[in-house]
């Protein structure tokens, strides 16, 4: 499989006035195929969110290179869109206006924008709430808006930075299943950062486990569960075994941090 997203030897050190420099990533490599759903799992501070922001184009590595479909990544671009953990919705815009944000910045004409936004709002199941403001929406609904917004510009890659971490357990489970449904329909390449072994195992084709800081790849596990996946799969022994395997790899990194 030719890698669709590629990263080689990514290194980044944070310099700070008051503290010692912190190396977030050290010779981190990554390869993701087109249409794959890949999770990145790792202990706190291992650099996974930092790396995602690099792929988004907001941070530049100190050394190393990244490519999307052969083209080097040097800054933000329309082919990559992110869904943020804290939603990042503009509080003074309605849900629909938030979805239209990326399209506005691309200078799409208003009528087209509205059509596209309405389509996506339907896709994420928010009909009837287009005119609501973020403070009137629940956490799960806010994240649906975030997802709709990310999909609006038709990116090829969806970057998701612990998107469900701020939601309660039930909403989180619901959103995971819905995310898979949307993914099946839209066929995006997804890079999903999470702390949750269960979430990574349930959603992904492959799980990349990172070491503690400075972060590099420790192991990559293939998830051999059939698709489409439903909630009941999480209750099977096979699923538990997968979770155990991931845990075996991850736990050393958690204890080694002390």
């Amino acid at each position: 499989m030719t890698p669709f997203i590629q990263a080689q030897n990514i290194t980044l050190t944070f310099k700070s006035k008051s503290r010692d420099p912190v190396t977030a990533l050290s010779n981190f490599d990554l390869a993701v195929g087109k249409g794959e759903f890949v999770s990145i799992l790792g202990p706190s501070g291992c650099g996974k969110s930092t790396f995602l922001n690099m792929l988004l184009g907001l941070i530049k590595p100190d050394s190393g290179a990244m490519q999307l479909n052969g083209t080097p990544i040097t800054g933000p671009g329309q082919e990559r869109a992110m869904v943020f953990q804290e939603f990042g919705l503009l509080p003074w815009r309605t849900a629909q206006a938030n979805v239209e944000l990326g399209l506005e910045l691309k200078s799409m004409p208003a009528i087209e924008r509205t059509d596209r936004a309405v389509e996506l709002i339907k896709l994420v199941g928010l009909n009837g709430f287009e005119g609501h403001y973020p403070h009137e929406l629940s956490g799960g609904m806010k994240q649906r808006v975030g997802l709709a917004r990310a999909l609006a510009t038709e990116p090829e890659v969806l970057l998701m930075d612990e998107p469900f971490a701020a939601l309660d357990a039930q909403t989180r489970d619901l959103m995971q299943t819905e995310l898979l449904q949307i993914w099946e329909r839209t066929k995006k390449t997804v890079l999903f950062v999470t702390h949750s072994i269960e979430e990574a195992a349930y959603l992904s084709d492959r799980v990349i486990v990172m070491t503690a800081r400075p972060g590099r790849t420790k192991d990559i596990l293939k998830i051999n569960l059939p698709r489409p996946r439903d909630y009941e799969m999480r209750l099977t022994p096979e699923f538990n075994e997968i979770k155990l395997r991931i845990w075996e790899v991850l736990k050393e990194e958690l204890t080694s941090r002390g």
Binding site: L58, P76, F84, G88, L105, K106, T153
Partner: peptide
């Protein structure tokens, strides 16, 4: 101003005026 929102605009390729 919420820095997150600044990052959101930047991630969509917005410039300083945006």
């Amino acid at each position: 101003t919420d820095l997150l929102l600044i990052n959101v605009i930047r991630s969509f390729g917005g410039n300083e005026k945006d």
